[in-house]
Simulated scan of single mutants.
Amino acid sequence: MGERIHAYFVSLGFSHEEASDLHLKYYTQYGLALRGLTKHHDVDPLDFDRKCDGSLSLEDMIQPKPWLRKLFEDIDRSKVRVWALTNAYKTHAQRVLRILQLDDLVEGLVYCDYAEPNFSCKPEAEYYIKALERAEVADPSKCYFIDDSRGNVQAAIRLGWGHCVHFSEHGLEVVEGGRAKQIDNENLSNGAKSNSKVPVITDLRQLRDTWPEVFKTEV
C-alpha cells in the first residue's frame, strides 16, 4: 500500500522526496493521506482508490486466521454489537472482511465515503458522530473502540467513548522515498503523545483479558 500511495504522489508531479514528505505530512495532519490530496490537490478520491487500495492483490497478502474468527465468534452478542470502522472506502473494507472470513460476524461498516465531496475520516469528530448515528448509539460512553492509530483512539476518548484500546503493531513496514523501513505505528498517530491510561495491546487475543465482560463465559 505504501508503495502505491508513494507512486500516486509521484504521478502528480512530485519528486520522490516531496512525495515522502507530503505523504507523512498529510497522514499526520489529517489521519489519511488522501484527505490532504483531496483538500489541496483536487484529486479524485475514487481514482486514488482504484490505483491504490483497489489495485492490491489482497488475496495473496492476507489469509483468514481460525483464532481471529474464533475471537469474533466468542463475543457475546447479547451484550454488544460489532461494527467495523475504517478510513478506507467500502469496497476495500468489504474485501478485507470477506477474505478474513469475518464479514458475517460484523453487523455494520462505517467507512470513508469517497463519493462525498468532503468526506470525513478518523480522527475527525464528524467521523465518530457519523458512526454513532449509523449504529444508532445514543451514549458513546457505552462504546468499545480499538484502533491501531493512537491518534484515532485519543479522538474517541475526547468524544466520550468509554472503553478504548490502542492496538500497537511493532515492526510495521512503510515506504518512504521508494525505500521500505521498519516503524512503530505509534509514531504515525497524528503526533499524539502517549496516554498511560489507555490500554495498549500487541495481539488482538489480549482483548479477552482487557474486555472480559464482552466475551462469552466458558461453561
Rank of each mutant, 00 (worst) to 15 (best):
E116I: 01
L132S: 08
I129C: 07
D139W: 05
A138M: 12
K130R: 15
P140H: 03
N118C: 05
S120H: 07
Y111E: 00
V137A: 10
E133W: 05
A135S: 15
E126C: 08
A125R: 14
E126G: 09
A131Q: 08
F119D: 08
G108L: 00
Y111A: 00
R134S: 12
Y128G: 09
K130D: 15
V110F: 01
D113H: 01
Y128K: 11
K130C: 12
Y111Q: 01
A131G: 13
F119Y: 08
K130N: 15
D113M: 00
F119A: 04
L132D: 07
L109D: 01
E136Y: 05
E124N: 08
S120P: 13
A125C: 02
A135K: 12
A135F: 08
R134Y: 10
P140D: 03
C121Q: 11
A115V: 03
E124P: 01
A125F: 06
K122Q: 05
G108C: 00
L109H: 04
A138Q: 13
A135G: 11
N118Y: 06
N118T: 09
E116D: 11
E124A: 12
E136W: 08
L132H: 07
E133N: 12
E116V: 04
E133K: 15
P117D: 10
Y127D: 06
P123I: 06
D113K: 03
C121T: 15
Y127Q: 13
E136I: 09
A125V: 12
V137F: 10
A138F: 07
A135W: 10
A125I: 05
Y127L: 14
A135V: 12
D139P: 04
R134Q: 14
V137D: 09
D139E: 07
V137N: 08
I129D: 09
D113N: 08
E124G: 05
L132M: 15
L109P: 06
E124D: 13
Y128W: 11
Y111R: 00
Y114E: 01
V110Q: 03
E107S: 05
A131Y: 10
I129L: 15
D139R: 05
D139I: 07
N118D: 11
Y127A: 13
P117M: 08
K130I: 05
C121V: 15
Y128C: 11
Y111S: 02
E133A: 12
N118F: 05
E124W: 10
E107F: 02
Y111V: 04
Y111P: 02
F119G: 03
Y114P: 00
P140R: 05
D113C: 01
C121F: 06
E136R: 15
E116A: 13
L132P: 10
C112W: 06
A115E: 13
C112M: 06
E116S: 10
R134T: 14
Y114R: 04
E116N: 05
V110K: 00
A125S: 11
P117V: 09
N118P: 00
F119T: 04
Y111N: 01
P117L: 08
L109R: 00
I129S: 12
G108H: 00
